[in-house]
Simulated scan of single mutants.
Amino acid sequence: MGELLHRHGQTYAAEAHIRLKDTPQPLYRTLVLAHLLSARIRASVAVSTSRALNDAGLRNPRRMTAATWQQRVDALGRGGYRRYDERTATQLGEGGQILIDHWGGDLRRMRQQADGDADELRRLLRELPGIGPLGTDIFLREVQDLWPEFGPFIDSKALQGAERLGLPQRPSELVRLAGETPNAELASALVRAALDKEVVTDCLSRVA
């Protein structure tokens, strides 16, 4: 566990240069990242595309909806997100408008409405185009240390990584083994093991 966390415990938000805190802009950028990561595309491409959207100034719902569809397509393309760029550009525009209309562009209001009910938060998140069950899992994984009422959140993909590494399948036991490591870093490390066999090989070779 120690090698896994030390070498692969970076969250995807951190990799995308999102300084995650409980304020509207980083939460929105993390939601967009979750949207991008939930497609059948390499995680590295989703991360680079998150950075490209930020560089284009599309870092909050109002800027996202104010941009033209073509501007969104172009930013997605610069990040390498070409296979899904047109559909995703539409979804990001529509989703940004829904966030503005229903929650004033502030995901903290959605959290407040969910009132600690993870299923309700999932339902609210899925009202946004392009955010399905996988997207909600990714978002909850990333924000769980900010929103502790929804954690520890060790989803099925993270448990798949734990299985590959020969680690326990109970989230509570994984959290115990991780010690003081933030739960989001633990979950991200396990997901990286699920997605990349080289992570598993690297970790197992170091404890052999």
Rank of each mutant, 00 (worst) to 15 (best):
residue 188 S to R: 03
residue 102 H to L: 12
residue 82 R to E: 12
residue 202 D to A: 07
residue 88 T to N: 03
residue 80 G to H: 04
residue 86 E to F: 00
residue 168 P to D: 03
residue 40 R to N: 08
residue 65 T to I: 15
residue 152 P to K: 11
residue 90 T to N: 07
residue 64 M to R: 04
residue 35 H to I: 05
residue 170 R to I: 12
residue 88 T to C: 13
residue 62 R to Y: 07
residue 58 L to S: 01
residue 75 A to I: 01
residue 132 G to F: 06
residue 201 T to A: 15
residue 174 L to R: 00
residue 46 A to P: 08
residue 173 E to R: 15
residue 54 N to W: 05
residue 197 K to R: 13
residue 123 R to S: 09
residue 53 L to G: 02
residue 168 P to N: 08
residue 35 H to D: 10
residue 125 L to H: 01
residue 19 R to Q: 09
residue 175 V to C: 05
residue 121 L to E: 01
residue 30 T to Y: 04
residue 113 Q to N: 07
residue 40 R to H: 07
residue 43 A to F: 12
residue 5 L to N: 09
residue 30 T to A: 05
residue 165 L to H: 03
residue 206 R to Y: 05
residue 164 R to I: 03
residue 74 D to A: 11
residue 117 D to Q: 09
residue 27 L to M: 11
residue 33 L to V: 04
residue 189 A to W: 00
residue 86 E to W: 09
residue 164 R to H: 14
residue 89 A to F: 00
residue 180 E to V: 10
residue 175 V to F: 02
residue 166 G to R: 06
residue 55 D to P: 09
residue 25 Q to G: 00
residue 23 T to L: 13
residue 204 L to N: 08
residue 92 L to C: 07
residue 9 G to K: 04
residue 158 A to M: 11
residue 197 K to T: 10
residue 196 D to L: 12
residue 178 A to S: 08
residue 69 W to H: 13
residue 208 A to D: 07
residue 31 L to C: 08
residue 94 E to S: 14
residue 74 D to Q: 09
residue 163 E to K: 11
residue 118 A to W: 12
residue 191 V to Q: 06
residue 125 L to K: 01
residue 15 E to L: 12
residue 1 M to Y: 15
residue 171 P to S: 03
residue 187 A to P: 06
residue 144 Q to P: 00
residue 137 D to P: 02
residue 2 G to I: 09
residue 80 G to E: 12
